[in-house]
Simulated assay, not measured.
Amino acid sequence: MFLGNTKNQKPGLFGLKNSNRDFTQKNAWGKNCFNSSFPASLCSYLHHRNLENIYIKLNSNLRVEHSNIDTTNFYGIDPQSDNLFYAFETQFTPYQQYLIGTLPGVDLVTQARDTGICLQAIEIKLTALPDNTTCDLSEEFYGCEIVVRPDTIVYLACSIAETFRQNPSYIKNLAGENFSGISDWTEPDCVIPYIPQMINVIDSIALSILENQKPFLMQPIWKTEGKSPKLSENCLDVFVWSDLAFTRLFIDLAKLELNAFGRIRSIARHTRTIVWLFRMLYDFSVNSSFSHRRIIDALSYNTKNDKAFAVSGRVTHAYMRSEALRQPRIQKNEIKRIILGGGQNLLSPERRFDAIIYNSPDLFD
């Protein structure tokens, strides 16, 4: 296993020996590639350092709690194994059976090279710490923004549906006949009164499978010194959300609205995500599959579908608060052990005019 740069090394990333990206080529280092391949490498590097990922799980009080998950359990295979293949932006084909239409890709699928079997579907969110809502707070209150794609909700629904593969009607029984009164699912006024019941059903589903929750989303963090682009000395770590814990990011926001106003006032993005997830799981419970594209396109509620929802660092801090968030475990001098063979020279970072001005105080001397 590589431990650092040498003159004879080819550009590469620690641990990513077999993948569908050629890291000797510049096009494998573009922003969209780097944002998933670097986190996969970082996760492998943590394993090399005998460190586990911080695992955010749901407990019986419907609150998140932290434990640890090693990368072997997360990937479904030892990250140092020659049998591991990293398939980026690929379909996790075991989930196709739950969908009508084409299965979207996921950021990373770990596979066994000898059999081709898909081991784990992993959504990846490489996030900056702090974000613009927490950068002016004291360091202990720093948080990361998370922006979620609609396809992530499709994979979330599939992850939960898989647990009920042998008994999909369990979800239908939980829902009962409560939702037969929705005359038009595309009209907010018809749906809004039922959202509290949808939340109750999703919560009941979660409580019934707490022991079966599984790793779902990898969230590596990179920490800077406040607003500046200068990395903190301790700057890298990895959080992993279970599928059930991840639901809290949008369900808890709706519960706050219910507690404050006694009702859901409109279908905001996070509320729409509840409707999407509920409808996907309900259709699965009736038909053993669901049409994700039809649900997402029809139930847009006059809001663009470019993203499912987003939550700021002020929101995520409550879920991620930990010593690893305050002081990540990987130091910046270790990055040269993760990015190998001069790979950093193939990066093509976005040029941000505001960042250039902010970091050029001499312009105003």
Results as ranks from 00 to 15, higher is better:
Ile209Ala: 07
Phe250Ala: 04
Asp189Met: 11
Phe216Trp: 03
Val286Asp: 06
Ile209Cys: 11
Trp185Ile: 11
Lys230Tyr: 12
Ala298Gln: 15
Arg293Met: 12
Leu236Glu: 01
Ser232His: 11
Leu231Val: 01
Asn287Arg: 12
Gln197Glu: 14
Ser180Thr: 14
Asn259Pro: 01
Gly226Glu: 05
Leu253Met: 14
Ser232Thr: 07
Leu258Phe: 04
Lys255Ile: 14
Val191Thr: 10
Leu253Cys: 09
Lys214Arg: 15
Gln219Glu: 11
Pro196Asn: 09
Lys227Val: 09
Thr271Lys: 10
Leu231Gln: 01
Pro193Thr: 08
Ala254Lys: 07
His270Thr: 11
Ala206Tyr: 09
His292Met: 02
Thr271Arg: 12
Ser232Gln: 12
Ile199Gln: 03
Ile251Thr: 15
Glu257Trp: 09
Asp203Thr: 07
Gly262Cys: 06
Phe284His: 00
Phe250Arg: 06
Trp241Gly: 06
Trp276Asp: 00
Phe284Lys: 00
Phe290Val: 00
Ser228Gly: 05
Cys190Pro: 02
Arg293His: 12
Asp297Tyr: 12
Leu249Gly: 02
Leu253Arg: 15
Phe216Tyr: 13
Pro196Met: 08
Val191Gln: 07
Gly226Pro: 00
Ile205Ala: 01
Tyr282Ile: 02
Arg248Glu: 06
Tyr301Lys: 07
Tyr194Ile: 03
His292Pro: 02
Lys227Ala: 12
Trp185Tyr: 12
Ile205His: 01
Phe179Asn: 01
Asn178Asp: 14
Leu236Tyr: 14
Ile295Gln: 03
Pro215Asp: 06
Leu258Ala: 04
Glu211Tyr: 12
Tyr282Leu: 13
Gly226Asn: 11
Tyr194His: 13
Asn287Phe: 13
Pro215Trp: 04
Gln197Thr: 10
Asp184Arg: 10
